[in-house]
Simulated assay, not measured.
Amino acid sequence: MHLTHPQQVFKFCPKCGSDHFRSKEDNSLQCDACGFRFYYNAASSVAAIILDEQGRLLLTRRAIDPFKGTLDLPGGFVSVDESSEEALAREIEEELGAEVLEYRYIRSYPNRYEYSGLTVFTNDAAFVCTLRDYTVIKPADDVCEVEWFFLQDVKLEDIGIKSIRTMVRDFIEHL
């Protein structure tokens, strides 16, 4: 098991502080002292597949870690009390300054990566989106650059996040 897995990182119960915080077989840790149980489930996130009128795919360049400098799709984590669709609209506004006009859910992709010394598990929902206005796109938030690619020119190895790489590959293959 990797050293950043929650079972390796969390040594003390966050409720009572006991060092009797033990791994269970159901993606959880349980405190033998107070009974507190913590599940390390996948966090929800969204990603937008956006094509322009020429059929080019919009890819962003990550301004932050993990995978700083690699290509990505616009999107991000779903906030507490927010639907995936609301998160999609918010993330597009934050990262591109654009408004989602229409969207269609495709499927979800599991992922895991290391952040702040901890393995983070995600469930990344892919949406194909059209924007109200493509001329307003401007990189912001955790995006440092926006690039358009004809599908045959996309280099999957330049996409840093595994689930996003798979998402883009599947989209290109099933068009």
Rank of each mutant, 00 (worst) to 15 (best):
R169N: 11
G69Q: 05
V168K: 07
F77C: 05
C31A: 08
F127C: 04
H20I: 02
I49M: 12
Q8F: 04
C13N: 01
V78C: 05
R104E: 15
A125W: 04
C34I: 01
A87S: 15
C34M: 02
A126N: 09
I106R: 10
F38C: 05
F121R: 06
E53Y: 10
V154G: 06
F171M: 14
L59S: 06
E82L: 05
F149N: 05
L29H: 07
E25T: 15
I161P: 00
R37K: 15
C144P: 00
E157W: 04
R56L: 07
A63I: 03
E82Y: 06
E25W: 10
Y39N: 06
E147S: 08
S84H: 12
M1G: 15
D124F: 00
L175W: 02
E82V: 03
K24L: 14
Q8W: 01
L131E: 07
V128G: 04
A47Q: 09
F150C: 11
R62W: 02
T130E: 14
D153M: 09
M1H: 11
G117K: 00
Y115A: 14
D19F: 06
E145H: 12
W148A: 05
G69T: 04
L3D: 14
R62P: 01
L156I: 13
A140S: 15
Q152D: 15
E91G: 01
D158N: 14
A42N: 09
K138T: 15
K15H: 12
E173F: 05
I49A: 08
S84R: 13
T130M: 07
G75Q: 05
S18H: 09
Q152S: 15
E145D: 15
G55M: 10
L59Y: 07
N41V: 03
Y115P: 00
V9H: 02
D153H: 15
D26V: 04
T130H: 08
S163P: 03
V9K: 07
A63Y: 03
C31L: 07
D81K: 13
R165E: 09
S108P: 01
R22I: 12
A126W: 05
R56H: 12
D158H: 13
C144K: 13
A126K: 01
A140E: 10
D19T: 03
F127H: 07
Y103P: 00
V168P: 06
V136N: 08
Q8P: 00
I161H: 14
I164A: 02
S84W: 04
I137W: 03
R61N: 04
E82H: 04
M1F: 10
L58A: 09
Y113H: 07
N111G: 11
G69A: 08
D81P: 00
R37Y: 00
E85G: 06
C13V: 03
V143S: 02
